[in-house]
Structure formats: C-alpha cells, structure tokens
Amino acid sequence: MHRRIVALLAGTAVALTACGGVQGGSAARDAAGFPTKPVELTVPSSAGGSSDLIGRAVARAVEKPLGTSVPVVNKPGANGAVGGKEVLGSSPDGHRLVMLFKSLMSITPLAVDDPDAIRFDQMTVVAPLTVEDYVLVVPAASPHRTVADLVGAGRLSYGTTGAGTGSQLAQALLFGAAKVDATDVPFDGGAPTITALLGSQVDAAVIQIAEAAPQVDAGALRPLAVFSEARIPFLKDVPTAKELGYDVVVDQRRFLAAPAGLAPEALATLQKAVATAQQDPRYTEFLEKNYISPWTDPADQVIPHLEAAKKGYADVIAASGITFKES
C-alpha cells in the first residue's frame, strides 16, 4: 500500500517535470524578458569593507532604473576569486552580476599561482564603477614621520590587505626599491589590517583612502605617502611616492561584470540602468564622502586598461628585481 502511494507520487513527479520548468534556484533558466526577477549582485568580499559599501551603494541606486530589487550577496574568499568564479561560471541571463576589482585581474596573477584564475574571456563587462587610491599609513604612536624615516629604520613588518592586492604590491615595490628588510603580513581585508595597525602589531600598512580617512581624521593613523599620479585633495600635504623618488603608482578600480555570453538586450538594459544610477545624487554624494572617484572610461576600455596595468606591474616588478610571487 505504501509502496503504491510512493509510486504514484513518483509518477506525478515525472509527469509534472515533463510539463513545467523549474523556477528559481541557483540555475534559473527563464530569460525571456529582462529582468524577470531580482538581479543579484555578488560582492566577492566580506560585508563592511569598501567593496561591499560601493556594491551596496550601486545596488541601491540601480534598483529604480532597473525596475527590480538588487540584493547584495557577500561571497568573500581569495581576494574575490571565489565569488567572481562562481558568478562568471553561472548562466549568463543577467540576473547575476559580480563586482570585480582591478587588483584581482591585474595584480593577483603576478602574486599567486592559480591555474584556474578568472580570465577576461569569461566575463562581459557591464560598467566601470570607481577608482580608489592607496595611502601608506603608520600608527600615531610610531616614531616615523616620513617615508625616509620608515625605510631607514632597518627591519620592519608591514600589513597588507591580502596576498595579491594593491596594498601588497605598492609596499613590495616601495620597500623593494628602498632595499629594506621588510616582511609582509597579509590580513583578510581592510578592517583587520587597520586593527593590527592601530595596535602597532605591524609597523606600517597600505590601505585605501576611504578606509583610512576616519582614522586619519581622528589622529589615530598618520599618512606618509599616497600612490596616485598626483596628490589627493583630501591629503594635500601628503607626498606621492613618485615625488619621493619611487616610481610606484597603484590604484584600485572596480567594475560590474556578468558571465560571458550575456544577451546584448540584457546588457543594454543593465548599462542604461547603471548609467542612470551613477547620476543619482545619493550615489555621487556617497562617493565624494568616501573619497572615491568615478571611473569614467567607456565599458569597452575596461579590459584593455586592466591588461595594460597587469603588463605594467609585471615590468616594474621585473625591473626592480624584487620577488613578488609568494616564495
């Protein structure tokens, strides 16, 4: 008797499966008309960091022009490779986007061997988003007031926001050029790096300006140098590394990407919505308040920029003779 019921149910299952498609889940296939459901934005780093905040600001601004909700999903791991791979490996229906960063595409490959790293041909670039700059900071209690002080101190340890990040690259190049015996200590993102720095666990660290700003304002951290081409308005008394004689220019850029093969109509819809979102006064105010500049290049210039940066960094590393790759 029981068996018959089970068989009956199983029969119904087969019948129902034959007539209807499965909705929802991680592999929703229904792509007719876009968007047909919420568009999920994966931020491949932990909640609370600058990537997360930018992701949430974009998501909030893009909801209205896109006409659907845009939930943000945090998927941290391996500098963004984990979340990036997951989204880029999903079906290209436009309902899953990922915010990727320059460091993952241009710096990580120079530092970490990953035979399975994200490739440019796996993605459709939806839109460039932001440019952020890095600053070298020391704790307020540190005796060092200038970069010259710091590199003259002999052996030191420096915090980075992870292996293969701009934070690591900038310091490896700087301390490499200054021929200091310096050890990098990778942390998982900006917040733990700042924590370690505030507690003087490391002598110095390079973090993004937005992350450093509240601490610099409060006098808890002292900025020594920035890694942009020109001085930063917020830190106009802080010299660039270039002025100090170190040819180190490193920035972080973020962009939205979807899996390769995204339908042109869906891409156009998304790009239009993001363009509108970037004019949203709350979004622009958010960027200003956090010392973030918009990345104004057209979408098709994103990949060439990243490729050029990767080559440029590789050349500098080769020329400086430092060993950047995890030895």
């Binding site: 909640a47 609370g48 905040l53 509240p214 601490q215 956090n290």
Partner: peptide, 19 residues
Amino acid sequence: TMAIMFGALLLHGITPGPL
C-alpha cells in the same frame, strides 16, 4: 553581523569610528 551594521551606518551617512 557587525560588518553589515557598519555598512548600514555608512549608508545612512554615519561613519563608525573613533569620532
């Protein structure tokens, strides 16, 4: 969870920090 709270505060224009 605190990290999300941090984000929530920032999105409301309040920067959690020493100040």
